[in-house]
């Protein structure tokens, strides 16, 4: 069950990830953690070696319970990679997944500013401050569930399209295979023998 804490008091937890040396090699993660603790409504800041691994996720879950967190900021990699991971993580700890925010210290910072220790650390602090500022305004959200029509369309009747259509058909799904030419087969049908086994294409 998802419990949404009352918002009388915002309690933010910040989790700074070393990502091995991926982040910690170019950013002063200890300084960023200290800085995070000074930000408004932040009640705890925790540094981790690998936040996405089980021990890292468990630290988030424990902190949510221990510090009664109702907002979580994960300062690690791009949300385009691990946002689903950490949303699931806070959900498992009873928090609405939309109360989690990420700061991208890896793709947008440590990986592109190696050798610029001060600049990268300053930037990392700002990215964390930005995420915390945003987190303070986050609200729990409910996702809309819509039905999916149980049929698939495959565009292109070459070897890939035919194979995909057969697979889906074998799995019991209805498939519409669309091909612009009069026959399926694609370019492969024009080949004589095919490597590496030298058998016929058709």
């Amino acid at each position: 069950m998802i419990v949404n804490p009352t918002d009388d008091e915002i309690r933010v937890g910040v989790f700074i990830c070393d990502c091995g040396l991926n982040i910690a090699g170019a950013v002063d993660c200890a300084a960023v953690t200290d800085y995070a603790e000074t930000l408004p409504d932040v009640v705890c800041a925790v540094r981790n070696k690998y936040t996405c691994a089980d021990p890292g996720q468990n630290k988030i879950k424990d902190a949510i319970q221990q510090h009664r967190l109702n907002r979580v900021v994960v300062a690690s990699c791009t949300p385009r990679q691990h946002e689903p991971t950490f949303r699931q993580c806070v959900r498992e700890a009873g928090l609405n997944p939309y109360l989690m925010e990420m700061a991208n210290l890896r793709e947008h910072c440590s990986w592109v500013h190696p050798g610029d220790w001060d600049g990268a650390t300053r930037k990392a602090k700002d990215l964390v401050a930005s995420a915390v500022a945003r987190a303070r305004f986050l609200q729990p959200q409910e996702e809309l569930t819509v039905p999916v029509t149980r049929a698939a369309m495959v565009i292109g009747g070459g070897v890939a399209g035919i194979e995909a259509a057969i697979e889906l058909g074998d799995a019991g799904h209805k498939v519409v295979l669309v091909e612009k030419q009069p026959s399926i087969g694609g370019i492969m049908a024009q080949l004589d023998k095919t490597y590496p086994t030298m058998d016929c294409s058709i």
Binding site: E143, V146, E163, A164, E167
Partner: peptide
């Protein structure tokens, strides 16, 4: 052929679920 199998499997997972969550 490998990729077609993978694509069919990914598509099948969605069709089997029969529903999709829309990001809020």
């Amino acid at each position: 052929v490998c990729q077609a199998g993978a694509a069919a499997s990914r598509a099948g997972a969605l069709l089997n679920a029969g529903q999709i969550q829309i990001e809020a």
